[in-house]
Amino acid sequence: MSTTGPDLVRINHVTKTFHRGAEDIHVLSSLDLTVAKGEFLALMGPSGSGKSTLLNLIGGLDRPTEGSVEIGGERIDRLSERDLAAWRARHIGFVFQFYNLMPVLNAERNVELPLLLTNLSKRQRREHAENALKVVGLSHRLKHYPRTLSGGEQQRVGIARAIATDPTLLLCDEPTGDLDRKSGDEILTLLQTLNREQGKTIIMVTHDPHASARATRTVHLDKGQLAANAPTD
């Protein structure tokens, strides 16, 4: 059973503005959000509402124009590029809509990729990768290349890759957006299991109310601002 703890993510008065030529595009406006440790948060909203931008800020892929992003007590918006990359390697696991697996690597080698940045030996890396694939139910597909896997299986490999380094936070950008209902449900169940049984904190961007229903809380974004904030179970 999952339990939520102290705040893991604190977004304080965050504004994000993109410059396109002479035009300024305000994607997020003075946004505040906290996510507790062990929470499974769904970020919903129409296209252009700023969901992915917010996910990028939390994942340290981008920096806010104003405001602060604090993860586990650390101001990541103040980190240098180099430190931010090292921080991502330690604390963040990304799950993408289109899986983003390396086509030239088999499932095991794909999952091993983030482990290359650790000090683990080759044998230890392989063990970690095998364990992660076991968690997502793909221990029988270690040597399979992405092109030989179904969409659902590819997303499972993507999730195994995201959890291989045992990150603090899982960030999922439309993880079921490219899957049929059945495969999508399996992925959501897997995420729910990771949240409930392993205590993983998950933030998931989705358009799909069916997907957001699996989260412990749903946040709606509209025009760069928080629209609603309600627990779902």
Binding site: L61, R88, A89, I92, F94, N100, P114, L117
Partner: peptide
């Protein structure tokens, strides 16, 4: 390019 983005997201530094 997309794969390079994935590597960087995982924590691979630019250098």
């Amino acid at each position: 390019t997309g794969e390079i983005g994935v590597l960087k997201a995982m924590g691979f530094t630019g250098p």
